[in-house]
């Protein structure tokens, strides 16, 4: 049984976030990031499933002096698995990926994902060339994840085994143009 609470993990990673840039995959990871505090430098997705890591890569290549964190789910990550190979080929030192792995498609009725049947996403990331790739099962390990995200040599990958809870929805803004504009204004200044 997975032990970690996804909201607590994300809150720990995003408190005192400083200059961190965040991309949140669609569904529960976007709600988790919003529950930790809606922020102009978080870009939450409402669609384009499978794209979260690649948005993170484009951002990390564009802003090599900033730390970039992708927070996504196991289903979203499985849909874009090839992106791990693409990131592995670029090896951005400033990019970290945290997969909140509840082993379920949480938005569609809690059907099992491939990780419930044994797919080891961290092993995939390691094989693709990530500098660090680990499965996280205990709260005591979350501080390691945090120091990796903010200071570690990337690309880093953490697969956090979280409970398959259905938690209250905490929704970010839905207007994609607004989300894009506020992110760019906060990062780049008035355009």
């Amino acid at each position: 049984m997975n032990a970690l609470n996804r909201r607590e993990v994300v809150a720990s990673l995003l408190e005192r976030r400083g200059e961190l840039l965040v991309v949140a995959g669609l569904g529960a990871p976007a709600w988790d990031c919003t529950a930790a505090g809606d922020h102009p430098l978080t870009f939450p997705l409402w669609g384009a499933m499978g794209s979260a890591c690649m948005i993170g890569l484009g951002l990390a290549l564009a802003k090599p002096a900033r730390r970039v964190l992708v927070v996504t789910g196991d289903g979203e990550m499985l849909m874009g698995l090839g992106g791990l190979a693409t990131i592995g080929a670029q090896r951005p030192g400033n990019l970290a990926v945290v997969v909140l792995d509840n082993e379920r498609y949480g938005e569609t009725g809690m059907q099992k994902t491939h990780t419930a049947y044994g797919t080891d996403l961290a092993a995939v990331a390691r094989a693709c060339g990530f500098a660090t790739a680990r499965i996280i099962r205990r709260n005591a390990e979350v501080s390691d994840v945090r120091s990796g995200i903010y200071r570690g040599k990337g690309p880093l990958f953490f697969q956090a085994k979280v409970k398959a809870d259905a938690l209250p929805l905490v929704l970010p803004p839905r207007d994609g143009a607004h989300l894009k504009h506020r992110f760019r204004e906060a990062l780049l200044g008035a355009q």
Partner: peptide, 26 residues
Amino acid sequence: MAAVPLTTEEEGIGLAAGAWLGGERS
């Protein structure tokens, strides 16, 4: 330029969006 080989074309749509969020063109 950063030349980025992809495993499948839709990865490039996400990459371009991330680049733009960071102030670059793709």
